[in-house]
Write a protein that binds this DNA or RNA. Structure first.
Length: 197
DNA sequence: GTTGCGATGCGCT
DNA sequence: GCGCATCGCAACA
């Protein structure tokens, strides 16, 4: 099922305007469909918290490309997280998809995450990718053509904002957005200091 | 609900 | 080598 052809134009605006527009949008991969409930904005070269802050590398190359593509990365030795690339081509901003509600394909999502409650199936960026079956191979996916597709809805009516989760290197900016009152929004954890081994 | 900590491997300095 | 846009589990409140 292809996405809407006007998606890239809708995502080409400033990241702080695009990020809240993704709340309530629908991310689909095969039979599993997620309604996005929580995101974070990353402002490319201007943002010490962004993977693109120190310039282009092989890993972050997709962030520098056109909007409407998926940037996937591997972290903590075992997890995949995904972002929606936004802003005009040549800039490097993106929106991390942090959490969502499964709205279709519940059985398959449960198979992929057998120990999670339904509320936790896509509560957290790595959990969301796991439930959707998104892997590193999906880095660079065109979100109109698929296999992963994004469909925007109407702008959300009740949006909350706060500091981003788990960053050590960046000053706190209120660039996390979520649907107020949603039970599927991930619990806030401030960045933890390093522990000795 | 909270806090503490180990798992795990790649990207980058 | 060091650090990481995390998670699941155990223990506690």
């Amino acid at each position: 099922m292809p996405g809407s052809p006007e998606l890239p134009a809708l995502l080409a605006g400033p990241v702080l305007e695009v990020a809240p527009r993704l709340l309530g949008a629908v991310l689909r991969h095969g039979d599993v469909v997620v309604r996005i409930t929580e995101v974070e904005a990353y402002d490319g070269a201007n943002d010490p918290g962004s993977h693109a802050y120190r310039g282009r590398t092989r890993r972050n190359a997709v962030m520098f490309g056109p909007p409407g593509h998926l940037y996937c990365y591997f972290t903590y030795g075992m997890h995949v997280c995904c972002n929606v690339v936004c802003g005009p081509e040549g800039t490097s901003s993106a929106v991390l998809v942090r959490a969502g509600e499964i709205v279709d394909g519940l059985e398959l999502a449960r198979e992929r995450r057998p120990r999670a409650s339904d509320r936790d199936l896509a509560r957290g960026p790595a959990r969301l990718c796991s439930a959707l079956g998104i892997e590193l191979d999906h880095d660079g996916t065109d979100l109109v053509a698929g296999p992963v597709t994004l469909t925007l809805g109407e702008p959300a009516a009740d949006v909350s904002t706060g500091p981003r989760v788990g960053l050590r290197g960046a000053p706190d900016r209120p660039w996390r957005f979520w649907l107020t009152g949603e039970p599927t929004v991930s619990a806030y954890r401030p960045a933890a200091p390093l522990r000795r081994r």
